[in-house]
């Protein structure tokens, strides 16, 4: 109450919060991350523009190493087209239709995982909604962020969308088979852009069509899986260590 005149007006009290607005999402993401780690699953948040080639890269990944047990959550506003493509490539997939939302959040990922058996995966790809802005703001519980950037998008996309690229652990420069048709475009120009937004710029030039770079991408994934799966390896048995000819 107002101290001076007793007029009955309530006091206006300042409350210091000093907390992240997305703290709730971050808590859910931490829960997801614990879940992935406990099951020895490498969770990768794959982001990029619509049409950057996210689904094609995952198809190429499955084609290149049939011994990997791959899972995917495919986020799109509408349709299950991506999940169908991924399933056809041998990746067990669940669709997340966001209807109008421009990104996935940790709860959407959590709810989608409830209906599937994550134990069965070595790597879970969370194929985010095609968008270079919003998905970067939301932690999903992934261990790594990978951004697909196709050579047709223009070399300056990283400096135009720094929030997304700053958070990338790896950039896949996709559709590099098209480079001969793109005068003025080069991997060097994209690398220059990346170095201005990523303190540690890491990228692999890939083509889902020709298979270029896919082996390097698989090696990057294998390297990231090592800490998570060193322990889990004993319980999983050795079924996936098939010989390659």
């Amino acid at each position: 109450m107002c101290d001076t005149c007793g007029c009955g007006d309530p006091d206006v009290v300042p409350i210091e919060i000093q907390d992240k607005i997305l703290a709730g999402n971050d808590r859910q993401a931490a829960h997801n991350r614990e879940h992935f780690t406990a099951h020895g699953v490498l969770a990768v948040n794959l982001m990029g523009s619509p049409g950057a080639g996210k689904t094609a890269i995952l198809e190429a990944t499955a084609r290149a190493d049939r011994s990997l047990r791959l899972g995917a959550l495919a986020g799109d506003l509408e349709t299950d087209h991506d999940a169908q493509r991924l399933e056809a490539a041998g990746i067990r997939s669940v669709t997340i239709n966001t209807i109008s939302a421009c990104h996935l959040d940790a709860r959407l990922v959590h709810d989608a995982l409830h209906g599937s058996s994550m134990n069965a995966h070595d790597i879970l790809f969370i194929e985010n909604v095609g968008n270079l802005v919003c998905p970067a703001v939301y932690d999903l519980g992934q261990q790594f962020n990978v951004v697909a950037l196709s050579v047709t998008e223009g070399e300056d996309k990283p400096v135009k969308y720094p929030v997304m690229f700053r958070k990338a652990d790896l950039v896949l420069i996709t559709k590099v088979d098209l480079l001969p048709h793109l005068p003025g475009m080069s991997i060097e120009k994209i690398a220059d852009s990346l170095a201005r937004v990523m303190p540690t710029p890491r990228f692999i030039a890939v083509s889902a069509l020709s298979g270029q770079g896919v082996a390097d991408w698989l090696a990057w994934l294998a390297e990231r899986r090592r800490p998570a799966h060193a322990e889990a390896d004993h319980s999983h048995g050795h079924g996936r260590h098939h010989a390659h000819s």
Binding site: M1, P10, V13, P14, I15, E16, I17, V163, R166, P199
Partner: peptide
């Protein structure tokens, strides 16, 4: 380089009417 600031999405303070 490391990012010293610029990625904050923080709720600092709420001023609310609280009955005595």
């Amino acid at each position: 380089a490391t990012l010293r600031s610029g990625d904050e999405i923080i709720l600092e303070r709420i001023e609310m009417e609280v009955p005595d």
